[in-house]
Design a binder for these strands. Structure first.
Length: 525
RNA sequence: GGCCCCAUCGUCUAGUCAGGCCUAGGACACUGGACUUUCGAUCCAGUAACAGGGGUUCAAAUCCCCUUGGGGUCACCA
């Protein structure tokens, strides 16, 4: 058995696409499942100036999710360099080989001529094939053209009388008729190699055993297979996995359509959450980070385990019932055979569900650390918390329970970090719960009970309120809502008694006093 | 348009390769109920799918053919 080697070859685009991450994950999984290697290769043939800046978010995404690569940027490896821009010699050599063996040729037809050939073919409703005029030239003429710098590209000479066949691990048998394939350009007029060519040279030189990529590359496969054949190198195994579609659609998830997604009901909440959270922690809004990017999930406080679980289940399943999957479980069970053939829509609700599960698995201390990070960035905490503050935050998080779905949710409870005169009261809540007929009077009485309460713990306060309700002959709803609004400023939150205890008696009394004044203030509206 | 791929509940999927165990299973979402101080969570229950048409067979979600629908790709992008 040869070693299983897979790769992911991103272009430095400045962000990591969530669908691309899924493709990378499947490659990584297949390598890990087989005890093989996963290689990261950077497709920087476009030569942007700041490759480094544009690459950082991509590497960060891999690091965040814990998908370490065995060879690639930063760590190097025996088949380097891992940047295509530094592999020019490999491509030049391969092209020369093809040229020498007559499997590729210089094409001197100007683009305009090719263009009109194409149009002519289209007009006659016949498939376009190169006319191969340059093949008529004598070796001397070719040399002459080259010597006098006549513009040219290099094309692969497609053997038109054969078929290309592959046994795809996901698609099964797929074949193409070479008689329908135009001679692809493999080297541009400026001397740089094209994707299809560079990929083959690299995959072959890096001894990639399995090319696992998105379905949209299926149509590149015959050309690549032909290049392998021309080069006399063994064909890798192929697995074309379905692409990821936008939620609720059947179209490929694409950053270009981000504008549309804003109005997509399945997506809208994510954008809103982004606007809300990112502005608080100084990361812009949902324009800077959107749900197509892996970084969005990281920065809004998703867990790697949640995202990984969701990504794993996108086009793959373990069996007929297992949904909650740890990375280790997936590694152990991942096979290409169980990859589904049809496109899979990104299911954000299910992602949220996985997230809740993995969040509840976390130790309190871990949650505290995550939340502290957000509180610091949002300037709710001005310094790293001391022991007392850490314990205080722990109490809040425990009280939140599974209301803490993503780490950024802690920001919804900022009132616990403010003094009584700093908190904001929700207008609606005040109107409904405090300005209601008789509400203030009840609240005032309850305040007295609180003040004189002997013990200030959850159990005692629970009893205190129930006794109060009984003696006043009111319903619990008549006081508890008013009390909540009074001490938190909001109509919703976690347990009432936990809230009171966490805030402490003095803070509660001060807040109630403030609320009482608010309730008395004139109803201008 | 050419080439290629795909088709099971609203969504992600199990079942398809080796036809019968499928009166099609699970999960998310949704609806109803229980619990409850709000929100959330939880527990119970429910709605809901084999795209259509032909074959083959004792038997088809599963095999074959056609139709329809959806999608990808057709560059000196990757």
């Amino acid at each position: 058995m040869t070693t299983i080697r897979t790769r992911f070859a991103p272009s430095p685009t400045g962000y990591m696409h969530i669908g691309g991450m899924r493709t990378a994950l499947f490659n990584w999984l297949w390598a890990r499942h087989n005890g093989g290697q996963f290689i990261l290769r950077i497709d920087d043939t476009d030569q942007q100036r700041n490759v480094e800046d544009a690459l950082a978010p991509i590497l960060d995404a891999f690091k965040w999710l814990g998908l370490e690569w065995d060879e690639g940027p930063e760590c190097g490896g025996p088949h380097g360099p891992y940047f295509q821009s530094q592999r020019g010699e490999l491509y030049t050599d391969a092209v020369q080989q093809l040229l020498d063996e007559g499997k590729a040729y210089y094409c001197f037809d100007p683009p305009a001529v090719i263009q009109s050939d194409r149009e002519a073919a289209e007009k006659e409703k016949r498939n376009y094939l190169n006319i191969r005029r340059s093949l008529e030239l004598t070796p001397d003429q070719v040399q002459e053209n080259l010597d006098s710098d006549v513009a040219h590209v290099i094309r692969l000479l497609v053997p038109r009388d054969q078929k290309v066949e592959i046994e795809d691990h996901v698609r099964g048998h797929v074949e193409w008729d070479c008689g329908l394939i135009a001679d692809p350009v493999i080297v541009r007029s400026n001397g740089s190699p094209l994707y299809n060519f560079a990929t083959v040279v690299d995959d072959s030189q890096m001894q990639i055993s399995h090319v696992i990529r998105a379905e949209e590359h299926l149509s590149n496969t015959p050309v690549q297979a032909l290049i392998y054949e021309a080069l006399g190198r063994p064909l890798p195994e192929f697995a074309h996995i379905p692409f990821v579609t936008a939620p609720g659609t059947s179209k490929k998830l694409s950053k270009r359509d981000i504008g549309k997604y804003r109005n997509n009901p399945k997506f809208r909440k994510m954008f809103e959450a982004g606007d809300n959270v990112f502005s608080k922690i100084g990361l812009g809004d949902s324009d800077t980070l959107n749900p197509v990017m892996v970084e969005y999930y990281e920065k809004i406080g998703y867990l790697p385990s949640g995202v990984l679980n969701a990504l794993s289940r996108l086009g793959w399943s373990l069996d007929d019932k297992t949904e909650i999957l740890s990375l280790d479980t997936v590694i152990e069970n991942f096979t290409l055979e169980r990859v589904v053939k049809s496109p899979a829509g990104l299911d954000l609700e299910k992602l949220a569900n996985f997230q809740v599960h993995w969040m509840t698995e976390l130790e309190l201390g871990t949650k505290v650390d995550m939340c502290v990070d957000y509180l610091r960035r949002a300037n709710i905490l001005e310094a790293d918390p001391d022991e007392a503050m850490t314990a205080y935050i722990g109490e809040i998080i425990e009280a939140m329970g599974d209301r803490l779905k993503v780490a950024a949710d802690i920001l919804d409870y900022s009132e616990f970090f403010l003094d009584h005169n700093e908190i904001e009261y929700e207008e609606k809540a005040v109107k409904k719960r405090l300005k209601k007929e008789g509400a203030a009077a009840i609240l005032a009485k309850f305040r007295q009970r609180l003040e004189s309460a002997e013990a200030f713990d959850v159990e005692s306060l629970d009893k205190l309120m129930h006794d109060f309700v009984e003696s006043e002959e009111i319903k619990i709803g008549d006081i508890i809502h008013a009390a909540r609004v009074a001490v938190t400023g909001k109509s919703v939150g976690f347990g009432m008694f936990e809230s009171l205890v966490i805030l402490g008696r003095d803070q509660c009394l001060a807040r109630i006093d403030r609320a009482l004044k608010l309730a008395e203030s004139s109803d201008a509206e």
